[in-house]
Design a binder for these strands. Sequence first.
DNA 1: TAGATTGTTAATCGATTAACAATC
DNA 2: TAGATTGTTAATCGATTAACAATC
Lengths: 206, 206
Amino acid sequence: MKNMKISEAVVRRLPIYLRYLNELTMKSITTVSSQDLGHKLDLNPAQIRKDLAYFGEFGKKGIGYDVAYLIEKIQQILKLDRQIPVALVGAGNLGRALCNYNTYLKDQMKIVAVFDASPQKIGETINNLTVQPIEELKDAVTRLGVRIGIITVPAIEAQNVANQFIHAGIEALLNFAPVIIKVPSEIRLHHADFTTELQSLAYYLD
Amino acid sequence: MKNMKISEAVVRRLPIYLRYLNELTMKSITTVSSQDLGHKLDLNPAQIRKDLAYFGEFGKKGIGYDVAYLIEKIQQILKLDRQIPVALVGAGNLGRALCNYNTYLKDQMKIVAVFDASPQKIGETINNLTVQPIEELKDAVTRLGVRIGIITVPAIEAQNVANQFIHAGIEALLNFAPVIIKVPSEIRLHHADFTTELQSLAYYLD
DNA sequence: TAGATTGTTAATCGATTAACAATC
DNA sequence: TAGATTGTTAATCGATTAACAATC
């Protein structure tokens, strides 16, 4: 099953599995079946087995999956076995909120630098990080080996910040600004957009 | 094409169309083709035509779509032609950030009440809203006709807050806490989860 | 051994894309 | 009329689910 192209849907489920597996660890549960996982996560057990089988044979027939081993494997798949340095531009409320997620992200990912364009924000401290002027972005990205950029600036500035990230050599971007931005095809761009999320939710009201 | 079951994928694209159409309005562009839309949004034009055709015949053959008319129609489909009251629980950085999105949400949706459990937050003002004690949630939801609830509390409190929203008669929930929560099937639950988003992004790094 | 559960193939289901007649 | 573009059907593609042999 190796070397197949993995669909985005599969990749998006892996962190969900990871989250539940971590919950099981905290409850000292050491084994889990696709049945259990499916029931808890509202997914088809066959789908879960298939998702995992793309990457290897992690389970034991008749037994299920060893929780600790599966966590390790999924972390490897998602490249969360090393620490991935992340930088954030936009030290407003949202940016500040995300910086506080460092705890949830464990050691696997870490926001290592925060930037803002407005002079009065420079020097502020957020969760042990000092807000730096945006002019320092390229230097810091290179120096700290930042691979993922987070954009939490107002909509009108988002494209500009994206350009600066790209110029600095970023590999992937997570954009929170409610605006369409364009990046070269080699940059992976994800959107985390509160407004579109709310708007699609409205559709399901009676 | 009416009365078909519309897939979630379609519903999630509608707000994206809406966003670009609004951009066009600001540029005083009055007509757009599925070709234009597809190119700008990296979608197949046929898909866009099909998405829209589920809901009616909004275009003109040989011409394209009238921007203002299409905005109106998509807003109707998403139920954004009326104002939908939203309540938020969790007045931390994230909650505060989302309250400031009221501007982006226009008049179509509005955060009308904010709650928190911690006594020192009560009475604070965020973007013209006064933080209220969580005990008032049910009353306020009823009084203000709140239909959507936003959860921006720490992970351990999320399920509890969800339960209180449900007890208050909410129809849909948007959960930002990085934890799996369970709700009855008649409640529409969406996740807006920063940590899983970042983790799946990591997969695409080389 | 009997029961449980995986990994995988085959069947099904659904979503995307291509193609084109209708028509502005 | 000629060119453009829709709405829709048919074809394709891909993802989910069912089924089951293998095996712990």
